[in-house]
């Protein structure tokens, strides 16, 4: 089966009838059920729902971290379900930028090295990695902090490094999982504005998982999920 499927909807990332079931028999748990979701270029979608509603599972499927039990996920018309593990890894490196709840920086790499590592995974030339890393960290106000280890950075700085890392390979999809959960309001606002700007420049589609209305307010569309199902009235 070809991984490339023409997508006339123009969606950059799309879930089509996705269901994710964990376990089997009596231990079977349906985390996400029959979800359809498309996000276009330049669009930031906020995925909102209570704990255990399936937000992270849906984000994991859209980010090629999990394969759906049934249904399909497309990233730029590539059917993620037909890719093998190596191809999914390459897809994540080149086409998906992640921002995690707690930044997920590697504690023994400096801010610059944390960002640059992703460029290596994506196969970018060393010169481009260095240039773009400096450029991104400068744009995000971290030019003076490039040689600092994560432990020497504030929570907001760490999350900005994480955003720089997500944008380094210029991916068409940006996925953020509760990116402001560990930040105060002011720093949270700063981070969500950076994420929104990265999407609204029209180069990529964005999905941010959150339960914070202030974050959702920056989104172009808010999608509610409850018990693994998207709320059609959302």
């Amino acid at each position: 089966m070809s991984a490339h499927v023409p997508d006339e909807s123009g969606a950059v990332v799309r879930a089509q009838g996705c269901t994710k079931i964990y376990g089997d028999g009596h231990a079977e748990v349906t985390a996400v059920s029959e979800v359809d979701l498309s996000i276009g270029r330049g669009e930031l979608v906020a995925l909102v729902g209570p704990s255990g509603s399936g937000k992270s599972t849906l984000l994991s499927m859209l980010g090629a971290l999990l394969t759906p039990t049934t249904g399909r996920v497309f990233v730029e018309a590539v059917d993620v379900g037909v890719l093998n593990e190596r191809e999914r890894t390459a897809l994540r490196a080149r086409r998906i930028g992640f921002v995690f709840q707690a930044s997920g920086l590697v504690p023994f790499l400096t801010a610059q090295e944390n960002v640059a590592a992703v460029g290596s995974f994506a196969g970018m030339p060393r010169g481009d990695i260095d240039r773009r890393t400096r450029q991104l960290l400068g744009q995000l106000g971290l030019a003076e902090r490039t040689d600092h280890l994560p432990e020497a950075l504030s929570g907001g700085e760490r999350q900005r490094v994480s955003i720089a890392r997500a944008l380094l390979a210029d991916p068409p999809v940006l996925l953020a999982d509760e990116p402001t959960a560990h930040l105060d309001h002011e720093r949270g606002e700063q981070v969500i504005r950076l994420l929104a700007d990265a999407v609204h420049d029209g180069t990529r589609a964005g999905l941010v998982v959150t339960h914070d209305p202030a974050v959702a307010a920056h989104a172009d569309r808010v999608v509610h999920i409850t018990d693994g199902r998207l709320d059609p009235t959302g």
């Binding site: 890894t89 994540r92 490196a93 992640f98 997920g104 504690p107 590592a117 992703v118 290596s120 995974f121």
Partner: peptide, 16 residues
């Protein structure tokens, strides 16, 4: 483990 999983999620091949 969490750091290594993060790197895998970011596209680090197992061989790296």
């Amino acid at each position: 483990r969490p750091v290594l999983a993060t790197l895998r999620a970011l596209g680090a091949p197992p061989k790296v």
